[in-house]
Structure formats: structure tokens, C-alpha cells
Design a protein around this nucleic acid. Structure first.
Lengths: 143, 143
DNA sequence: ATATTACAGGATATTTTTATCCTTTATTAA
DNA sequence: TTAATAAAGGATAAAAATATCCTGTAATAT
């Protein structure tokens, strides 16, 4: 469904979103540990998120990453789009280059309904929402 | 969503299911052409489907592949399961090893609804259904 | 100023997925 | 029985995704 890179991105963002005000910064090591992801690889992905202004990065002692205001309000949709592109939201399930109402693949209509369901969910779920679930103990960041 | 291997498998099966009675056999070359997929790679995938009794293969002159009776009735679900495994139907969107009602990830409930929607669709759509759409000109096998 | 800390980014390695090639095996037609 | 055909299957190859390592750069604290 999503690439590992994308899962690491989402989980890192959610973790940062769970941190309480006043101590919202975390280093790579802590992020990787909290999310069960490989440190160096995660670093690469965070770089992308920083470039997109979804994260702030601070070098030096007491440095680390913080979720930006923009990032906090960001829907899950955006993270996926940034890391995996939006083929999952728009691409043909069966691989047709052109798959549309006019030229549908054999499951176009049925599949479109599911994609739309997914897209809607991803657009309306923010990282903040997800963090809230974690912070209230309703859901979990790692196994 | 699905691997290329899986898309090739589905498209090959659907193509074979579109062939009229009495001439339901097609060679690798024709299958690959009809579905826009690489011949040798597709051959490997068809081997798997043959082992699963979803296809029959016949060697020698006038040989080729035929969809089996079992294959014709098979839901899309089964092809995906055979080629990609069922992580798409059961796995956690965010990569948690254990993701369940008891120990849900941050989008478990919302995502489960979508997965169930997908699973239902895949279980109720047979290759025959898909072939019918192609044969009636409603849908297309390639771009 | 200097040593230390921590991210940035380039280079490289590993693994998985996708793809091709070639020999073998089975089948058919002549 | 032989030549031709077509899939099976093993061996590689190429590409993409995942992962690690190392040097450079910025920031901080002493």
C-alpha cells in the first residue's frame, strides 16, 4: 500500500506531533526508536519533510526535529503525496496508462469508489488527530 | 497497490477469460501483447498460476495457456493472494507488526473500513465478470 | 576560540522487484 | 523418427527500494 519510506515518514511525523508543548523537539535517535525505524534511512526521509516545511530541523546540541505549525495541521494525504507521489490516489489498479470513465479498466468503477474512500479518509485525517489518539492511549505508535 | 507481477497476472487471466469457447488457448506472445506486459517476466508469473491450477499450460505446437474452469470462477482476490500474498488485505497501513482492535495503530479503524471495502470488492469480482466487461466493450485490457 | 553535538548530503551497499536469456522438456506435425 | 514449436525452469542482469556510512556544516556550550 504505502512504501516503507512513507510509513516511516508518517510515524515520525505523528510521533513529533505527540510531543507536549515546550518539549516538542526530538533527535533522530529518539524518533527512530519511538517509531521502530532505521535511523539513517529515516534521516533521509525527514530531510524531504523539512524541505516541504512540514518539519523544522535544528542543528547542534539540543538540536533535532520539530513539527511545524503547517505540519501539525497537515492531512495524512500530504505526507503520502510527498513521499510516494499520488499514484495511489489516482493510478489504475490494473496498470493501464489511461484509465478513466471514457476508457476504464475492468474494475475502474468499483475501484474508484475504494480509492475515493481512501482519499477522503486521508484528506480528513490530520497528524494532530492521529497524535491525539496516541496521547490518549487509544492507539499505538509501535508494536 | 498491487505489484507489477500481480497486475500482469490479473490482466493475463482476464485476457484468457475473454477468449471464446473453442479457441480459448493463447500463447505467451499473444498474452503479452494483449496485456502490454513483458513476455519473459509474464511467463514466470503464469507458471505460478499454472501450479495453482488457475491456468492450464500445453507445450508444443498449438500449445499455450488456457484458463481452467476453476480459474474462470476465481475471484480477483485469489490472484492477488497468490502473487502478492494477503498483506494488502490484512496488513497494517502504518507498518505495525501487531495491529488489531486491542492494539490499533492511529488509523486502524478508519483503514480497516477501507480494507474491508477492498476485500469485499475483490472477493465478489470474478475474472469472468471482468472478461464480460471487456467482451461487451464496456472496459479495456490495455491503454 | 574550541570541542562537542546533531542534522545535511554525498557515496556506497544491500535487498527486493522486475526483466531477460538460454537450455531443457514435452508435444505435435510431417 | 525427426524437425519444429512452445512452455518450464535455471541463471543472470538491470532497476528500484531500502539501508548504512562518512564527511561536511551549523549551532551550542564551555
Amino acid at each position: 500500500m504505502f512504501s516503507k519510506a512513507c510509513k516511516y515518514a508518517i510515524n515520525s511525523m505523528v510521533f513529533l506531533a505527540t510531543l507536549p508543548e515546550g518539549q516538542e523537539r526530538a533527535g533522530l535517535k529518539d524518533i527512530a526508536f519511538a517509531t521502530n525505524s532505521p535511523e539513517a534511512f529515516t534521516a533521509k526521509i525527514l530531510q524531504t519533510l523539512v524541505r516541504e516545511n512540514l518539519l523544522l530541523s535544528i542543528k547542534g546540541p539540543n538540536g533535532g526535529f520539530e513539527i511545524s505549525e503547517e505540519g501539525r495541521k497537515t492531512p495524512l494525504y500530504r505526507i503520502v503525496q510527498v513521499i510516494d507521489g499520488d499514484s495511489i490516489f489516482t493510478g489504475c489498479a490494473l496498470g493501464l496508462q489511461e484509465c478513466s470513465e471514457k476508457h476504464p479498466c475492468a474494475v475502474h468503477h468499483k475501484f474508484k469508489a475504494i480509492r475515493d474512500h481512501l482519499t477522503g479518509m486521508m484528506m480528513t485525517t490530520t497528524l494532530q488527530d492521529m497524535a491525539l489518539g496516541i496521547n490518549t492511549g487509544i492507539s499505538f505508535l509501535k508494536t
